[in-house]
Simulated assay, not measured.
Amino acid sequence: MREEEVFRGIAARVAARDYSDYVYVRPGYLDANGAWVREPAPEDMRWMEERGSQEHLAALAADAVDPLPPLEPASVQAVDEAEQALGHPLPPLLRRIYLEVANGGFGPVMGVAGGSTDDLGLTAVDRLDSREPSGLLPIAYWGCAVYSYVDCAGRGAMMWGFDPNSGLAEHSFHAEGISLVDWLDRWLNGRLEQPCLAPDPA
């Protein structure tokens, strides 16, 4: 039941073209009443604001937010090829999202072939590396080489973080302690944060 709620929530956000954590708004400022006042600017100029911020909501109320482009689902072939490359089936919820809603592109989520990529133009499948733990699929890119992975080999589709900037070498992979369902639910509710490793002070 919870998986169905998360699926429907993501599908609704994608259908409403409200799926990015950052939005493009037409230049302006908040007045004393919190309303967005447009400023003279070239027609093609946009500012980036965090989704849900006061600026975003005020610009939205003033019809100063550009709609995001529609997202397309993945092909069955692309998802099947991802599972073959990984050597494990995708978690049912992720497979369904890819096939019925979007091939990545919502929040930090990466796609399979033909879908959303990281800043190097790599899909989740392109990022697979035989030197990394088996069964982990990188499904989210956060910038600065930080990724979130879902464990497709273990029970519960648990999430893992990868932060090569941690200085912890082989320990850069770490369990996040939440399932894919919880992780996606956090994104839907604006509570998802990138994985972060902090050395144990002891």
Score class of each variant (00 low, 15 high):
Asp80Arg: 15
Asp80Tyr: 00
Asp80Asn: 14
Glu81Met: 10
Ala82Gly: 14
Ala82Trp: 10
Gln84Leu: 15
Ala85Asn: 06
Pro89Glu: 03
Leu90Arg: 06
Pro92Leu: 04
Leu93Met: 04
Leu93Arg: 01
Leu93Asn: 04
Arg96Leu: 02
Tyr98Cys: 03
Tyr98Ile: 02
Glu100His: 12
Ala102Leu: 03
Ala102Tyr: 04
Asn103Ser: 09
Pro108Cys: 09
Pro108Gly: 08
Val109Ile: 15
Met110Ile: 09
Val112Pro: 08
Ala113Arg: 13
Ala113Pro: 01
Asp119Lys: 06
Gly121Arg: 00
Ala124Gly: 08
Val125Pro: 13
Val125Met: 10
Val125Gln: 07
Asp126Leu: 01
Asp126Trp: 00
Arg127Gly: 03
Asp129Met: 01
Ser130Glu: 13
Pro133Phe: 06
Pro133Glu: 10
Pro133Gln: 09
Ser134Gln: 15
Gly135Gln: 11
Pro138Thr: 03
Pro138Ala: 13
Ile139Met: 14
Tyr141Cys: 08
Trp142Phe: 11
Cys144Ile: 10
Cys144Gly: 00
Ala145Asp: 15
Val146Trp: 00
Val146Leu: 01
Val150Asn: 10
Cys152Trp: 04
Ala153Trp: 01
Gly154Asn: 04
Gly154Ile: 05
Arg155Glu: 15
Gly156Asn: 04
Gly156Lys: 01
Gly156Ser: 03
Ala157Val: 04
Met159Glu: 11
Met159Phe: 13
Met159Arg: 08
Trp160Met: 05
Trp160Cys: 03
Gly161Phe: 11
Asp163Arg: 09
Pro164Gly: 05
Asn165Ser: 14
Gly167Ser: 09
Leu168Tyr: 03
Ala169Pro: 00
Ala169Val: 13
Ala169Gly: 08
Ala169Phe: 12
His174Val: 07
His174Leu: 07
His174Arg: 07
Ala175Tyr: 15
Ala175Val: 02
Ile178Ser: 12
Ile178Thr: 15
Gly190Met: 01
Cys196Gln: 12
Leu197His: 05
Ala198Leu: 14
